[in-house]
Computed example of a mutant assay.
Amino acid sequence: MKKVLLPALLLSLLTGCAHQPVYTAHYYRTHKAALKKELAFCTKAEKLSGSDETNCQTARSVESAEEAAAGLFSGGTNNPALLP
């Protein structure tokens, strides 16, 4: 019984080591290199599951929010009525 229980326990502990933590939007906003790395991973991956899918969704939302903010506050306008 002990010969079966100990390997099963060790295997279950090692299975949890491959789990990737789920990062927040604040993490990706403050760690630009991690954001770029995650976005590159998301485009290459064929199938995502669990924490990988959550991280990809969070990274994409941070990227789109930053792009929208950059366009909103860029200072330029395309409206000819507003030009001097």
Results as ranks from 00 to 15, higher is better:
Ala69Gly: 04
Val4Arg: 06
Glu63Gln: 08
Tyr27Cys: 01
Ala69Asp: 05
Pro21Thr: 02
Glu46Val: 08
Ser51Phe: 08
Ala81Pro: 09
Gly71Asn: 14
Lys32Glu: 09
Cys42Ala: 09
Ser51Thr: 15
Glu53Gly: 12
Ser12Asp: 09
Arg29Leu: 15
Leu48Gly: 00
Thr24Tyr: 13
Lys47Trp: 07
Leu13Gly: 13
Lys47Ser: 15
Tyr23Phe: 15
Thr15Cys: 12
His26Leu: 13
Ser64Gly: 09
Leu13Ser: 12
Ala34Trp: 08
Asp52Leu: 02
Met1Pro: 15
Leu14Met: 11
Leu9Lys: 01
Glu46Tyr: 10
Ala8Cys: 12
Arg60Gly: 14
Ala34Cys: 02
Thr77Arg: 05
Ser51His: 10
Lys3Glu: 14
Met1Cys: 15
Pro21Tyr: 04
Thr24Phe: 13
Lys32Met: 04
Thr15Ala: 09
Phe73Glu: 03
Glu38Gln: 13
Glu53Val: 14
Ala69Ile: 00
Glu38Phe: 07
Ser51Met: 11
Ala45Val: 03
Thr30Leu: 05
Ser74Gly: 15
Asn55Glu: 00
Val22Lys: 09
Ser51Gln: 04
Gly76Trp: 03
Glu53Tyr: 15
Ala69Asn: 07
Thr30Asn: 13
His19Asp: 14
Tyr23Leu: 13
Leu72Gln: 06
Glu63Leu: 11
Ala68Ser: 13
Lys36Cys: 09
Lys2Asn: 15
Ala68Gln: 06
Asn78Leu: 15
Cys56Phe: 05
Phe73Met: 04
His31Met: 04
Ala65Lys: 08
Val62Ala: 02
Leu48Pro: 01
Asn79Pro: 04
Leu82Tyr: 11
Glu67Cys: 06
Gly16Cys: 05
Leu82Phe: 05
Ala33His: 10
Leu14Arg: 02
Ser64Trp: 00
Ser74Met: 11
His31Asp: 09
Cys17Arg: 05
Leu10Phe: 14
Arg29Met: 14
Leu39Val: 07
Thr43Arg: 05
Leu48Tyr: 01
Val4Trp: 05
Ser12Met: 06
Thr54Ile: 14
Tyr28Arg: 04
Leu35Thr: 03
Leu6Glu: 12
Leu48Trp: 00
Lys37Ile: 04
Leu82Met: 15
